[in-house]
């Protein structure tokens, strides 16, 4: 497989997120020719002066034509859409506006700008949902049954639905969505990572599903590959090998606090609602049922082979947190 060519002028939304910000940095460091155009409200400090920021609020009603104009003027040829909240907040309305309506605006603008040929969207494998009747490996054509209690995944699944309709209507565009499983690594931080950061980790009594993790570097590499090569459609991303939750905790030397789920779902209800806007099962069901993904499509179409296995990704997260504690 050829190494493919990077877009010359790449627009990125969501520079404040891990994927948006770190991909921009990575490309600027390694590829001197590339020009990165930031679309959003503000820039992280590390990127100031290195990318050109166009102030756009994706939630504005007319954001699509503003975006189209910018893409046209900057002669962008690809867009990485990463403006999704890493961790759900209780601002349910706000994230709906940003993640679903904002994505719609991004799609429409991509179609309207003349030079565009590629759209890469940072989705998540959580859109499949964790269910007792999931097959052991979820392939990309599996139904998206995002957890009905999770507002962000509900929106994300709906967004993907719209995305594939959009891709059908615009065959001139290469539309890719990346669905990584949970990400771990030395710097990545989200709700999941925070749940696993303590010495004691709450688990569900009597359940011990197989889990996958993707290393943060692998995630960035996959995004870069998706920008280089044309792999239309959804792509699952995960480290090789799946391990039971109990084994992961044992590897990390963490204690587990197994609680019966009816109890946990009741005692954590208000707290979870206050912090994430969702009932606790929107998160804990992913520690209860299987949602392991099949990654052969990313390997075949993208030539993406993760450098870290699930175990290595997990251990790199664990070790980095341990060091941080001693510092």
């Amino acid at each position: 497989m050829s190494s493919g060519e990077l877009p010359k002028r790449l627009a990125i939304t969501g520079l404040g997120t891990f994927v948006g910000g770190r991909v921009a940095e990575r490309l600027l460091e390694r590829e001197p020719e590339i020009e990165v155009i930031a679309l959003g409200l503000h820039l992280p400090h590390r990127l100031e002066g290195r990318v050109r920021l166009h102030r756009v609020d994706l939630t504005e009603p007319a954001a699509d034509s503003v975006l189209a104009e910018i893409l046209e003027k900057e002669r962008c040829d690809a867009l990485l859409h990463a403006a999704f909240r890493q961790t759900p907040t209780r601002d349910v309305e706000g994230s709906h506006e940003l993640e679903l309506i904002g994505s719609l605006h991004v799609m429409n603008a991509t179609a309207a700008a003349s030079g565009m040929r590629k759209l890469v969207v940072a989705s998540s494998a959580q859109v499949y949902g964790a269910y007792p009747d999931n097959p052991n490996f979820l392939c990309e054509d599996h139904r998206l049954r995002a957890h009905p209690d999770s507002h962000s995944m509900r929106d994300r699944a709906e967004m993907e639905g719209l995305l594939w309709l959009f891709a059908e209507r615009h065959p001139q565009l290469v539309v890719t969505s990346l669905r990584p499983c949970w990400v771990a690594g030395p710097t990545f931080d989200d709700r999941v990572v925070r749940h696993f950061s303590g010495r004691t980790v709450t688990t569900l009594l009597g359940y011990d599903p197989l889990m996958q993790f993707l290393h943060e570097e692998d995630l960035l590499r996959a995004v870069e590959l998706a920008l280089r090569r044309d792999a239309p459609g959804p792509l699952n991303l995960a480290g090789d090998g799946a391990l039971p939750l109990s084994t992961l905790l044992r590897l990390a030397g963490k204690r587990s606090l197994p609680l019966p789920h009816p109890l946990l779902y009741r005692i954590d209800f208000l707290n979870s609602l206050r912090r994430t806007g969702d009932a606790p099962q929107a998160f804990y069901d992913y520690l209860r049922f299987l949602w392991v993904v099949d990654t052969s499509r990313a390997r075949d179409l993208l030539g993406f082979q993760p450098e870290y296995t699930t175990k290595e990704a997990w251990m790199s997260f664990v070790v980095s947190r341990r060091l941080r504690r001693y510092r």
């Binding site: 052991n136 197989l210 039971p244 084994t247």
Partner: peptide
């Protein structure tokens, strides 16, 4: 309850668990 510290749970597990 969880049997978490049982010796003899291996770290190598096949793809179906």
């Amino acid at each position: 309850i969880s049997g978490g510290e049982r010796a003899g749970i291996s770290y190598e597990i096949d793809q179906f668990g």
